[in-house]
């Protein structure tokens, strides 16, 4: 802490005896993995709240897609109620896709991903933390907003819990599948169309089971079976998608 200009020779003389002690790198105790992941999650959340305008965009997009259908088809609530599951899920799928492009892009650009890859922590876990932040910022708000969209399509309020549950669970799987596509398209300019081409086919099972669960929620049927299938997809995604996304991130850094 002496003046910056002081020659390093003095420092050498003072510190050299320390060099052989095992405690020299005591300051470098690796942080526990969970702390690191929590910090990565908190960082993304804090950054998102600094740019609140961007947070609203997928939600506004979702609301707009929902609005297109009454205008394009018919304002009759009976007909809208029939297509409501499809409208909700197509809207949720597209809205979550819209937000995916930003999942890794800034971090790749400013070198954060590089630092994560070299942090000595499991990159898979850090990527999982980032994806979790992404879900908290897009999937969860979409799940909370889906009932509003459903009500505007003439769905009765008894269906609300089922709709929230199915969109919440399904969007977990969507975020995870999307993280693979987002990581693979890193470094490609104007990657939006390609990202959709990669992600949508892989997301179709989520769409199928999610729309079915929503349909059953609206008609008052037993929706446990499709909900369980959705949950199975989400669990499969949690176990495999971060691995693939981390591999893709590493490849993008090569």
């Amino acid at each position: 802490m002496s003046g910056y200009g002081s020659p390093a020779a003095g420092v050498v003389a003072q510190a050299a005896p320390l060099a052989r002690q095992a405690t020299v790198w005591a300051g470098s105790h690796q942080a526990p993995l969970l702390d690191a992941a929590r910090l990565a999650l908190a960082r993304d959340l804090q950054l998102a709240f600094r740019k609140r305008g961007q947070l609203v965009q997928p939600l506004a997009f979702f609301a707009m897609v929902t609005m297109l259908f009454p205008l394009a088809i018919s304002p009759e609530l009976a007909r809208l109620r029939e297509i409501a599951p499809g409208v909700l899920w197509a809207g949720a799928l597209l809205a979550s896709l819209l937000a995916l492009e930003f999942l890794f892009r800034d971090d790749a650009y400013d070198g954060t991903l590089e630092q994560y890859a070299l942090s000595g922590q499991s990159l898979t876990w850090l990527i999982f933390a980032k994806t979790a932040a992404h879900w908290l910022l897009t999937g969860l708000p979409l799940a909370l907003m889906a009932p509003l969209a459903a009500l505007s399509l003439g769905v009765s309020d008894a269906a609300v819990p089922g709709i929230v549950a199915s969109v919440a669970v399904g969007s977990v799987a969507l975020s995870l599948i999307g993280s693979i596509g987002a990581a693979l398209t890193l470094g490609i300019k104007r990657s939006g169309a390609l990202l959709s081409l990669l992600t949508l086919p892989l997301s179709l099972p989520v769409l199928i089971f999610g729309a079915r669960a929503t349909q059953l929620a609206i008609s008052g049927g037993p929706l446990l079976a499709p909900l369980e299938l959705l949950a199975a997809l989400a669990v499969l995604g949690v176990t495999l998608a971060p691995l693939a996304a981390a591999a893709a991130v590493r490849i993008s850094l090569e």
Binding site: I180, L184, T185, G187, I188, S191, L194, L198, A244, A247, A248, I251, S252, E254
Partner: peptide, 15 residues
């Protein structure tokens, strides 16, 4: 989309 052959190889392999 990926110009570098090695990156294209490895990224598409993951896909």
């Amino acid at each position: 989309g990926l110009e570098d052959t090695q990156r294209a190889d490895r990224a598409s392999a993951v896909l």
